[in-house]
Amino acid sequence: MILGAIVACEVGFWLAIVAGLLARYPGRRPRLGAALLVAAPLIDVVLLALVAADLIGGATASWHHGLAALYIGISVAYGHRMIAWADAAFAHRFRGAAPRVKPTGWAYTAACWKDVARTLLACLVAAAILGALIVVVGAPERTAELLAFFPALGVILGIDTLWAISYTLWPKKPAATAS
């Protein structure tokens, strides 16, 4: 059930964003677009409520519950950036705005380190959700799987940090231009 809820919330998140941007740009209804964009984070609240209700209702935690916590953490940490990226793409397509410049060199390295900070925030949010669920459920035998999810958060943060270190040592070169 929770895995289905995660998929439904992810689909709902992107549908809210696309609907908001379609209303904003081709529909020329910025207020409606803003309202639909605000709905995207509310979907995370729905997912959190579903996960909590499932566990409080007696379910035994699985990796799906941990994945839901991670999904919410990523949405909190990266959601604004994802919406800004989609907004810029729609502005380019429907309003003729300049395309976003892809960073290279030290600008890309700086962006990688900002992503490490975002990933840290995502892991902290996920850990807080997992910890709160463990405390609220109060049944260690049913929440053992949630405790097992903490090392995965460390691995995710470690991989992102290694990515940033690699681009610190070997900065991304600009794409070759055709002559």
Rank of each mutant, 00 (worst) to 15 (best):
A128R: 02
K102V: 15
W85C: 01
F90A: 07
V136T: 15
R31D: 11
W170A: 11
A117F: 13
G105Q: 08
S75L: 04
A16R: 08
G58K: 02
I56E: 03
G138W: 00
P103Y: 06
A35W: 15
D44S: 11
L120K: 02
A53F: 04
G79I: 10
Y71P: 00
T119Y: 02
F13R: 03
V155W: 11
G66T: 07
A8V: 10
P171V: 08
I6L: 08
A97N: 06
A139G: 01
P103G: 08
L47G: 00
I159W: 04
V137K: 00
I159H: 02
I2N: 00
R81M: 07
G27D: 11
L153H: 11
L133R: 00
F149I: 04
A23Y: 04
H65W: 04
Y25C: 05
A91S: 08
T109W: 01
G79F: 12
A84G: 06
A19I: 00
G131L: 05
V116A: 01
W85Q: 06
I43Y: 01
A175K: 13
D44A: 05
F150V: 09
W163I: 15
K173W: 05
A59V: 11
R31Y: 13
P99D: 06
P99F: 10
V101W: 01
H64P: 02
I134Q: 04
H92F: 08
H92I: 03
F94V: 07
L67S: 09
D54A: 14
W63L: 11
L130D: 02
A5G: 06
V38M: 08
I159V: 15
R142M: 03
V76D: 00
G27C: 11
V11C: 03
P140Q: 01
L37I: 08
F94G: 00
T119C: 05
I74E: 04
P171Q: 01
V101L: 03
L32N: 03
I72H: 07
A69V: 13
V11N: 01
A117Q: 12
A144N: 05
L15K: 01
I74K: 00
A176G: 09
A19S: 09
A89N: 14
I74C: 10
A111S: 13
A98N: 09
A16E: 05
A88W: 09
H80E: 09
A152I: 13
A110P: 00
A148C: 00
